[in-house]
C-alpha cells in the first residue's frame, strides 16, 4: 500500500515520480557509500510519520517556508501539506549563481495516514523549519484492551 502519493489529478505521471523518488532515496550513493548524507533538495519536503496509540505525528522539513505560505488540510485519512518556498533573493533572475542546490517554488505533499483520525484537536506547529502536525486518532482506530476471562 503506498503511504504517499502525489495529487494524481495534477500530473498523470505523478506515480512514476513518486516511484523514482523512492528509488533515489533508497539507492542514494551518498547514503550507501559516502560519509555524509545530503538532505532535502528541491522544494519537495521530506516527511516522517509516526503512528502512536492515540495520535499520529507527521514531521516535515520545510526550511525557509514562512508560516503564512503554508497550508495544511485533512480530508478523510489524507493529509495534504501545501506550501510555497521562496528563495528570499532579490533580482533572482539577474544573479549568476556559483552554486545552487536549494530550490524554490510551490509544493504539495499528500500523505495517506496509517489510521483514521478524529476531526478535532488537530494541531500544526512550525519551528526552525520543521513542521509538526499532530492528529488525534478517531475512537474507532484506537486500540482497545480486551480482558481475557478464564
Amino acid at each position: 500500500m503506498p503511504l504517499l502519493r502525489w495529487e494524481t489529478n495534477v500530473d498523470p505521471f505523478a506515480s512514476f515520480q513518486w516511484l523514482r523518488r523512492e528509488f533515489d532515496r533508497a539507492f542514494d550513493p551518498l547514503r550507501l557509500f559516502g560519509d555524509a548524507r545530503r538532505i532535502g533538495g528541491g522544494v519537495f519536503p521530506n516527511i516522517n510519520i509516526y503512528n502512536g496509540n492515540s495520535d499520529i505525528v507527521v514531521l516535515a522539513e520545510v526550511p525557509g517556508v514562512r508560516q503564512e505560505d503554508m497550508d495544511v488540510s485533512i480530508t478523510g485519512d489524507t493529509l495534504t501539506i501545501k506550501g510555497r518556498k521562496t528563495s528570499g533573493i532579490d533580482n533572482e533572475e539577474k544573479i549568476r549563481f556559483e552554486r545552487r542546490e536549494r530550490g524554490s517554488g510551490e509544493f504539495t505533499r499528500v500523505v495517506i495516514l496509517p489510521d483514521r483520525v478524529a476531526g478535532n484537536n488537530m494541531s500544526a506547529k512550525l519551528k526552525d523549519g520543521i513542521l509538526t502536525v499532530t492528529l488525534p486518532k478517531s475512537e474507532a482506530a484506537k486500540p482497545k484492551q480486551i480482558t481475557v476471562q478464564s
Binding site: 551518498l30 560519509d35 555524509a36 548524507r37 545530503r38 538532505i39 532535502g40 533538495g41 528563495s87 533573493i89 544573479i95 549568476r96 549563481f97 556559483e98 552554486r99 545552487r100 542546490e101 536549494r102
Partner: peptide, 13 residues
Amino acid sequence: AETLLPLVDVWQD
C-alpha cells in the same frame, strides 16, 4: 552519529 550536508546557494552581488 549522523552528519547531514546542508544545501547551499552561493552567489555574488
